[in-house]
Design a protein around this nucleic acid. Structure first.
Length: 612
RNA sequence: GGGCCGGUAGCUCAGUCCGGGAGAGCGUCUGACUCUUAAUCAGACGGUCGCGUGUUCAAAUCGCGUCCGGCCCGCCA
C-alpha cells in the first residue's frame, strides 16, 4: 500500500523539478525590472509548450483566504501579478489576471480586528463577537457577515480585497472557491483525487508526516453543524452500482485542531457529495492550476506548500504547475503586519497619504527583498517616486539601470491614474473619482499611452514635504500663491496641472498630521497659544504690527522682522521663534514675512498685539 | 535540529549572477541666494559592505563557518 515508507524516501530526496524553483529572480536576469524578467521566463515556458496556441491568453493568478483585514502585504498577490501582466501585454500578449478568494477555508480563530467596506478598522467586540465565535470551523462563505452588508463573512472580505484592487486600477477577475465547489467546477478534479487517493497520499506523505493510509484528500462540510470535518470513513465514487451514481463520501464530524485550540465536532455521521466539502489546501491549490501560467506567492509558501503542490501537480494531477515567483513580505514601520494586533495598513488607508501611482510604484521594487512600508519616512518614498517619474520623462539624470527600469515600469504605474484624469477626448478631468481606472481594451490603452507620453508630461509634483507645509492653511488661493512664489508652480503651468499639483497637499497634510512631525503646522486661528514675553519683545511685536498695518508687501515684512529684532537687540532666531509660537504654537514654520502678508490683516494685527 | 530568503552610509535602497574604482537619493553639517527654518545652488561629513576564515595578484561579490531578522520543515492556509 504505502511502499514509499519502505524505501525510506524523505522530503530531501524529493527533487524539485528545475522549472519549479520559486526563487526565480536569483542570479542573472535578462532585465533590470523584475517583472520584465518574469514575463520573459513565462513566455519561454509558454513557447516550449507545443500543444498551446500562442494566441491563448496567458493566465496569472493570486489568492488568499478572506479571513480578515486585507493589508498592503496581501496586495502582493494582485499587484505583483499586475506588473507581470502588463509586461506581457506590452509584448502583445493577451493576459487574464485572476484572483481566487479561498473562501471555503474554515474560520480557525477569531480576528481581533475587522474592517467595514469603507476600510474602517473596528474591534471585534464592536460587531457581536459572540455570534462570530459560534462559527469557528465553518467555511467563510457560510458565516454571516458581521457587518450585515454582504452575503457572508467571506463575501465581505472578498469585496474588500476586490475594492482594494479597484482603488489601484488593477483589473482582476474574482473567483470564489466556494462557487467553484458548488457549481461543480471542482468536481472532476476532486473525483480524480479520490480515485487516485493512494497516489495523492504517497506524494503528500513526503511532505507531511501525518499522511497515513487513512488519509483522504477531501474534507466534507458537516450537514448537521456546518463545520469542515477531517474524518472521512468511506469513499463511494458512484461507479459500482449506487442508485444515484453520484460520488459521495461518508464522514464523522470529529474535532479539529486549530493551532493550540480545538474546534469541537458534533459527532454527526453523514454523507456528503463532492460539492459539499473542500480539498485540503495542499491539493486545493494545485487543483486551481488547471489552466494557469504564473502565480506569485509569499515566502511562507516557498518551502512548504509550493514544493508539495508542484509535486502533486506533476505526479498526481499530471499537469504542469504555473511559473512561480516567491516574494518577500513587507513590514509596516519596521514590524510585521498583524491583523490581530491591528498593525495593518490597507490600500484605503495608504491612499489617504499617497497617490495611487506612488503606491503602485512601491510594488515595482524587487520582490525578493523584504521591504518596509514606513509611514514615518513616507516622504522618502514619494521623493523616490517623483525621481522615478522624472527619469522616465528625461527630466533627471540617472544611470542606465534606473533609466531602463523607469522606461519599463513607469507606464503601468501611471496608466490607471492617467486614464482617470483624462476623459475620452483626452481632456483633463477635475478632481477625478475614482483616481485610478483599469485600462483594459486596446483602444483605451493606446490612448492612455499617448497621454502618458503627451499631455501628462506637463504634470507638476510639489515636493511632498513642501505640500505638507502648504497644508497649514486651508485657503486654496493662498496655497497656490505660496507654491508659485517658491517656484514649485511654473508660471506657464496649464490650468489642470495646478489643480493636480495642489491635490497632493491634502495627503501630505494628513501624513504630517498623523505622524505629528516637523511639517505638521497648523495655524492657530481661534485661540492664541500661551506665550511668555519680555517687555522688549512685546515692544518689538507692537512695532511689527504697526509696520504690517501700513500694508507692506511680503518681502518688506520679512525684512522688517529682522530690522525690528535688531532694533530691540533681540536674537533674530528667537524673535522668529516667538512669531511661530504666536501663530503656530510651534518652534518652526513657513517663511514668516510672506505668510503674514497673505493672511487677513485683522487677524495678523490682533495676534501680533496679543489681543487674541 | 535541518532547509530557504535577507542583513551595503543616520534613513530608503542599487551594486552580488560574470571578483578589480564602495555608490545613489534623502537626511545631517557648512556656505551662497543682501538677511535662519519648506525651495534652489555649491561643498563637506558619513560605511571594517553582519562577523570570521579560505581561495586569489585582487573578495561586498566565490567557498566554508558563524551571528542577527524573517519564513518553512507539526497542523492550517
Amino acid at each position: 500500500m504505502t511502499d514509499d515508507e519502505a524505501d525510506g524516501e524523505s522530503e530531501s530526496d524529493r527533487e524539485l523539478h528545475p522549472d519549479d524553483d520559486p526563487y526565480v529572480l536569483q542570479g542573472r536576469q535578462p532585465h533590470p525590472f523584475w517583472a520584465e524578467s518574469v514575463a520573459e521566463q513565462i513566455l519561454e515556458r509558454v513557447a516550449d509548450d507545443s500543444d498551446r496556441d500562442p494566441d491563448d491568453p496567458i493566465v496569472i493568478k493570486g489568492g488568499i483566504s478572506p479571513s480578515g483585514v486585507p493589508h498592503l502585504g496581501n496586495m502582493n498577490e494582485i499587484v505583483r501579478g499586475y506588473f507581470v501582466a502588463e509586461a506581457l501585454r506590452e509584448r502583445g500578449r493577451e493576459v487574464r489576471q485572476v484572483f481566487t478568494a479561498d473562501d471555503r477555508d474554515p474560520l480557525r480563530k477569531l480576528p481581533r480586528k475587522l474592517a467595514d467596506l469603507d476600510g474602517n478598522v473596528v474591534d471585534l467586540g464592536d460587531v457581536n463577537a459572540g455570534a462570530l465565535g459560534r462559527n469557528l470551523g465553518k467555511p467563510y462563505t457560510d458565516i454571516p457577515d458581521p457587518f450585515g452588508c454582504c452575503d457572508s463573512y467571506g463575501d465581505h472580505f472578498s469585496n474588500l480585497i476586490e475594492r482594494s484592487a479597484e482603488l489601484l486600477g488593477i483589473p482582476v477577475e474574482m473567483v470564489s472557491n466556494t462557487e467553484l465547489y458548488e457549481s461543480g467546477e471542482f468536481e472532476d478534479v476532486t473525483r480524480y483525487l479520490l480515485e487516485n487517493r493512494e497516489r495523492a497520499r504517497e506524494v503528500l506523505s513526503h511532505y507531511q508526516d501525518k499522511v497515513d493510509e487513512e488519509y483522504v484528500p477531501f474534507n466534507p462540510v458537516c450537514e448537521e453543524c456546518g463545520k469542515i470535518t477531517e474524518t472521512v470513513t468511506a469513499v463511494n465514487l458512484g461507479e459500482d452500482g449506487t442508485e444515484s451514481g453520484e460520488a459521495t463520501v461518508e464522514y464523522v464530524c470529529t474535532d479539529m485542531e486549530a493551532g493550540d485550540q480545538t474546534i469541537e465536532g458534533c459527532g454527526h455521521e453523514g454523507t456528503a457529495t463532492l460539492r459539499e466539502g473542500k480539498l485540503p489546501w495542499r491539493f486545493e491549490w494545485p487543483a486551481q492550476w488547471q489552466v494557469l501560467d504564473h502565480e506569485p506567492f509569499g515566502k511562507d509558501h516557498a518551502e512548504g506548500s509550493w514544493p508539495s503542490g508542484a509535486d502533486v501537480a506533476r505526479n498526481v494531477l499530471e499537469i504542469e504547475p504555473p511559473h512561480p515567483m516567491a516574494y518577500e513580505w513587507f513590514t509596516l514601520d519596521g514590524e510585521p503586519f498583524s491583523s490581530s494586533e491591528g498593525h495593518v495598513i490597507m490600500v484605503q488607508d495608504a491612499l489617504e497619504l499617497l497617490e495611487p501611482e506612488t503606491l503602485r510604484y512601491f510594488f515595482t521594487k524587487d520582490p525578493s527583498k523584504a521591504r518596509d512600508f514606513s509611514i514615518e519616512h513616507l516622504d522618502q518614498l514619494v521623493d523616490e517616486f517623483d525621481r522615478f517619474e522624472r527619469i522616465y520623462y528625461d527630466q533627471q539624470e540617472a544611470d542606465e539601470t534606473d533609466e531602463t527600469i523607469a522606461e519599463a515600469a513607469y507606464p503601468p504605474v501611471v496608466r490607471p491614474a492617467v486614464a482617470a484624469r483624462f476623459d475620452e477626448d483626452g481632456d483633463p478631468v477635475a478632481d477625478p473619482d475614482p483616481e485610478s481606472v483599469p485600462v483594459v481594451d486596446a483602444i483605451r490603452r493606446a490612448q492612455a499611452n499617448e497621454l502618458v507620453d503627451g499631455r501628462f508630461r506637463d504634470r507638476v509634483r510639489l515636493p511632498y514635504t513642501f505640500a505638507a507645509v502648504l497644508g497649514m492653511t486651508d485657503d486654496p488661493d493662498l496655497r497656490e500663491e505660496i507654491a508659485r512664489r517658491e517656484c514649485h508652480l511654473p508660471s506657464e503651468a496649464p490650468e489642470w496641472t495646478v489643480e493636480f499639483a495642489l491635490a497632493r497637499v491634502r495627503r501630505a497634510r494628513e501624513w504630517a498630521r498623523r505622524t505629528g512631525n516637523e511639517f505638521d503646522y497648523e495655524l492657530k486661528r481661534t485661540e492664541m497659544p500661551d506665550v511668555d514675553l519680555d517687555p522688549e519683545t512685546e515692544a518689538a511685536l507692537d512695532e511689527l504690527a504697526d509696520f504690517v498695518e501700513e500694508g507692506r508687501d511680503p518681502d518688506e515684512i520679512q525684512g522688517e522682522i529682522y530690522e525690528t529684532a535688531k532694533r530691540h537687540d533681540l536674537d533674530i532666531g528667537e524673535f522668529f521663534g516667538v512669531g511661530y509660537r504666536l501663530f503656530f504654537d510651534d518652534d518652526e514654520g513657513p517663511k514668516l514675512g510672506p505668510f503674514l502678508a497673505k493672511l487677513d490683516r485683522e487677524f495678523v494685527l490682533a495676534r501680533l498685539r496679543r489681543e487674541g
